[in-house]
Each structure stands twice: as structure tokens, then as C-alpha cells.
Design a protein around this nucleic acid. Structure first.
Lengths: 341, 341
DNA sequence: CTGAAAGCGCTTACAG
DNA sequence: CTGAAAGCGCTTACAG
């Protein structure tokens, strides 16, 4: 007996042909119960695992999906990953999370990712260069974008309803009687900053009120940004009764600076964030915020990819899915008792 | 001209043999400058990318490494991943992060991971079943363990010096004059709980003091665990001047409960954590803790894998690397001013 | 329901 | 320094 390996060894042990073993494995054509049993016994006896390289060489599929993120230490992305796995594992796909380390690193990693011939790629990227867009389109790899359209024919995308979330925050604050409401954005040129401010304006308009441009400042999406934002707003006026921040980190920095100035939250001034990161519930007072449905974004992205991979969908129009967000009211806007010391 | 693809198309365009193209790609044997130039021109013209499946089928290598973690939403693991990438990308390996979703999920995912024939796997797992250990050993895949030995011949492991970190915390507290120091552990049977308490005892012994067993309680590694721990400790006595917690989450819960009881941190009682998660700097007062060198753990694990993969190391003895930890002193033990309101 | 054979795209001895 | 050929382990028409 020659020393065979792989599927040939299984075939020999089971006393059937190599093709029959393959059919048992794939289920692509009917196999008699007796044969199937012999083959499965041989597989178990030999501890056989198909070689994925050989498989993909023929089938042109790798059964793996990549999630390419700019910064895996940002807690938003692990949640997206978990959501994608929810959908992909039961469908037989393996999800690989690839960290580019930064927005600019994404382009650099893209080449490596395309080389590996993943069946599909999910990516969250701010500025995709024309060269990268062309590489993606040519590669034939299915792409789903998170957060924004990346402008490739047939590439679907999923985003959360930022504007709606800020409209809810605005309504909540207006509903509790706050009127002198400042806004601290992240980088002024960023899409999220604009969309989020837009949602706040919408809440004011809905209540028949105008929103004053002098009530907005733009800094950066960081804790320091929040501190700077408060400093800038309090130079303009000092009677704010609420501060809406473009994300939770800004809000936490804003609370630091408000506390340093001897102001009480929420008795003197209410503060809100966005994203509902873990820290939002950990800080004191706990932060009213909006849940960014990261996990659901991941699930949706995975479903869109699977649909495209199932074929037939090649000529389907690009899909754009917007997920609604949920207001999470905590103590920073509504604490009934005066702040404890 | 027949319609070739892959390396054959490159060979035809360049007017050389398929083997020569392969040699240019791999650098495995000398190629004349002129030939190399022709081949590279053809590669660029055709936008050729080698097929990884075909490559691994022959070479028995995938040039990819997997990091298998129990819960990617635990911020410790993304940092480990970043550290591994620091080392692996320059070496030409792609790192795939795979999330098992839970400790128990790790075994379930292991089969899928082994099927993919990664060249190496890094994993952090508490209880590896004998069956899984056998599967890992048989697969021939290189394994490096994070946090503990998994008992496979030739599998190195990396851990951080928990005991040393707690010894530093203990010395810091004793040095600031605290003596009535309680300890809130996680699950009592867990290795980390034992090791960490051991470090604290060591600090007392070093100062010529004894440590009282009645000063320890075990709960769980969560925020709720911290609340419960305080309740349990204050049933025993009420004059604690410091609480050492087995991780940051416990510490944050402990601070919640101390504050609720009207105690001031650190004026009445100091609190310490472990890990230095982001939230440790975000809470108020900011938390004195110990940095768990996650990124360095990742780097070290990656280096160990690469060394083994470079061969020659097959018969090298198992390596066990312990990384030292760093004390991070913040306001929860030393705030010079009375706590602000 | 089953088998023999071609071929996916590479790498690697073997020859020259 | 270069080429022809075998073969890695599968899947998939083609035949029966």
C-alpha cells in the first residue's frame, strides 16, 4: 500500500473512489447511505481534514470573510466583529479581523488582504483612494462598507442613524426644560460631526425653536476635545444648561472640565454623549447617551455579504441600510437627587 | 494565444518559463537582472497576484497566524492583537483575530481554526480539554499560549507578572501609611485571584507585617463583584483605609459602593485596580492600578511563534516568558486635595 | 449511485 | 542561469 494522504487515503481506507469521498464531504450529489457510512468512518479513523488551499484552488472560494478596521482598540469594532460572527459562523464562514492600526494603514493593508482571496471584505474606511477603489473593484472580492458608501458598483453599505439619534437627544433635553444647549463636535470637516449637529438642529426645529450657531464648537473626538470644547463654550457665555457632545469621549472630557469649574452635573448643567461605550455607564454621574448599534451593524453587513455571495445578486442594485439608534437615559441629564460628594 | 491565467500568463507575457517566474517571486534561486526585469514588467502589466491556495498546497505554509480569543470585546485582547501585528506584518505574515465569544466557545471554534491550516496559533484559554489538547498537538500547528501553559510539548507561553504587580501596589499603599487593607478577588478558584492575593501578601511580608485572611473576600471579576465585595468587607469591620481589587472592573464597582455609603476616596479609603483599562483613567477619582502589558505580550508571543516557524527550534525546550508590570499611581490613592463635589 | 480523469495554480526537484 | 515536468489535494464535468 502506497502512502497516500488527504482525500486519497480516505478513499483507499473506505474502499471507494476519491470523487465519492468528495461528494460525501460536499453533499453535491446523492450518495448511498452505506457508502456514506464507510466514508465517514474512514474520515474519523484517519482524523482527516480537507486542505483549504486545494479546495479553494478548485472551487475559487475560501469560505472566509475579512473585517478590515482602522483601529481594533476602538471598542466599536470588536462589537461589529461579534455581530458579523453571529451570522457568518452558522453559515460556515470564518471571520478574520484585520487591524490596519489607523485610517491611513487601511490602504497599506488592503493589498495583503486582497492577496489572500477572502470571499468577502467588510471595511470601515474614511477616505478610500481612487487607486484602492480600483484595486477592490478589480479583485472581484465582494465588499460591504460600514458607515459610508465607498462608491464601488454592487458594494452595499450599512450605517447607523446618527442624525436621528441626536434628534432624540435634543428632544429629551428640550422635554426636560433645557433651552441653553451647547454642542461640542469632533473635527469640523468630519461627516459624523455634521450629521450629529444636524440631528440636534432638527429637534429644535421640531419644537418650533431656532438653533444658534454660536452654541457650537468643533474640537476632536477625544477626551481632551471635550475639555477644550467646554473652555470655548464658556468664553461665549456661562449660563448653559445642557451640553450635547458628539461622542462619549468628548462628553467625559466635558464633565471633567465642568466639575473642575465647580459646576454640578446635572443640577447646573446636563451632559450627553454618543456611542454608549462601556465607560459611559462607569463614569459618575453615568452618562446619558445614544447606543450606536455596532453589533447589529455587523450582523447586517454579514447578511448583505452572504446574499451577494449566494450569487444571483450580482446585478442587484446597491443596497443602503440605515439602522435606527436607541436613546439611553442615565444620571447626567436626569439624576433626581443632588449630586453626591 | 490560449487564454492562460495566473503564473502561466505572466510567463507567456514575459517570454520565460513558469519556473522562472516562480523563482523571481520567491527569490529561491538566482535570476539574471534582465530576466527579472521582464518578469516584473509582466507582473505589473497583468496585475498578477499569486493564488495563496495553490501556494500553500505546495509549500505547506499559509503565511498566516491566528489569534484565538475568548472575548474580543474585552479590551485586553485587541491590545494583544496590535502587539502581534507589530511583529508579524513586517515578517510577511497576516494576523487573523478569531473571536470565540466565550471561554467555552474556544473549543468549538478550534476545529474551524485547525481546518484553515494557519502556520501558527496564539491562544488565551483557561481550561483546555484533553481532546482539544490532542487535536492541537496532532495538527502540527505551532501554538503559543497567553497567560498560562497549555501543556503541549514545544508550545511556549507568555504571561505577565501578576504577583509582582500586586506586590508593587501593596508597597505603594503601605508606603503611604495605609495598614487596614482589604482585598476583593474575582472567582476564588481562579489562578489570577490566587496569584494577585499572593503578591499583596508578599508586600506585607516584605514590610515585616502579617496579612489577615479575614481581610479577603472573593466575588467575580465584574463591577457587580466590586459592589458585593465592599458589602462583604464592611460586614467584617468598617475602618478599612484601603481596598485592593483584583482588577479594574471590581475597583470601579467598589468605588460605586463606597461612594454610596458616603465614604470619600481616597481621603477615607484608597482603592486600587489591575489592568489599566481605558476606564481606569476615565472614572472619578481616576484609579491607581497596574498596567497589564498586553501589547508587549502580543509582541512576545509573535516572536516566539516566528522563532519556532523558522525551524531548527523544533527540539528547543519550551520557553516561558514572564513580563514585568508597571504601577500607575492616580488619584484614588493619592489625591492631594479633598475630593471635589 | 459511482468512478476515472482532467485540471485549478503553484513549487520544487531534476536536467542541462 | 533557465526550462520541462511532476505533483501538492482537491472539485467537477464526463461516462456509465
Amino acid at each position: 500500500m502506497t502512502q497516500k494522504s488527504g482525500i486519497a487515503a480516505v478513499a483507499e481506507t473506505a474502499g471507494v473512489s476519491v470523487s465519492t469521498v468528495s461528494q460525501v464531504l460536499s453533499g453535491n450529489r446523492p450518495v448511498s447511505e452505506a457508502t456514506r457510512a464507510k466514508v465517514n468512518a474512514a474520515i474519523a479513523e484517519l482524523g482527516y481534514t480537507p486542505h483549504p488551499g486545494a479546495r479553494s484552488l478548485r472551487s475559487r472560494r475560501t469560505e472566509s470573510i475579512a473585517l478590515l478596521v482602522p483601529d481594533i482598540t476602538n471598542p466599536f469594532y470588536p462589537l461589529v466583529a461579534v455581530g458579523m460572527q453571529d451570522v457568518l459562523l452558522p453559515a460556515g464562514y470564518l471571520l478574520s479581523i484585520l487591524d490596519a492600526g489607523s485610517q491611513s494603514g487601511t490602504g497599506r493593508l488592503l493589498g495583503h488582504v486582497l492577496e489572500r482571496r477572502f470571499d468577502g471584505i467588510a471595511l470601515h474606511i474614511d477616505g478610500l483612494s481612487d487607486a484602492d477603489r480600483a484595486r477592490l473593484a478589480e479583485s472581484g472580492t465582494r465588499v460591504v462598507a460600514l458607515g459610508r458608501d465607498i462608491g464601488i458598483e454592487g458594494s452595499d453599505y450599512v450605517e447607523s442613524d446618527d442624525a436621528g439619534g441626536f434628534a432624540k437627544l435634543g428632544e429629551h433635553l428640550l422635554g426636560t426644560g433645557r433651552r441653553r444647549i451647547g454642542f461640542i463636535g469632533g473635527e469640523e470637516e468630519s461627516d459624523p460631526s455634521r450629521l450629529r449637529l444636524g440631528g440636534l438642529r432638527q429637534a429644535f426645529a421640531g419644537a418650533g425653536l431656532g438653533y444658534d450657531d454660536a452654541a457650537t464648537v468643533f474640537t476632536s473626538f477625544t477626551r481632551d476635545g471635550g475639555r477644550d470644547g467646554i473652555a470655548a463654550l464658556y468664553e461665549r457665555r456661562t449660563d448653559w444648561d445642557a451640553i450635547v457632545c458628539a461622542n462619549d469621549l468628548i462628553a467625559i472630557g466635558a464633565m471633567d472640565e465642568l466639575r473642575r469649574r465647580g459646576l454640578s452635573i446635572p443640577a447646573d448643567v446636563a451632559v450627553t454623549g454618543y456611542d454608549d461605550i462601556d465607560a459611559a455607564a462607569l463614569v459618575h454621574p453615568s452618562l446619558t447617551t445614544v447606543e450606536n448599534p455596532a453589533r447589529e451593524i455587523g450582523r447586517t453587513a454579514a447578511r448583505l455579504l452572504l446574499t451577494r455571495l449566494a450569487g444571483d445578486g450580482d446585478d442587484a442594485p446597491t443596497q443602503h441600510i440605515t439602522l435606527s439608534t436607541r436613546l439611553v437615559v442615565r444620571d447626567s441629564t436626569t439624576s433626581p437627587i443632588p449630586q453626591e460628594r
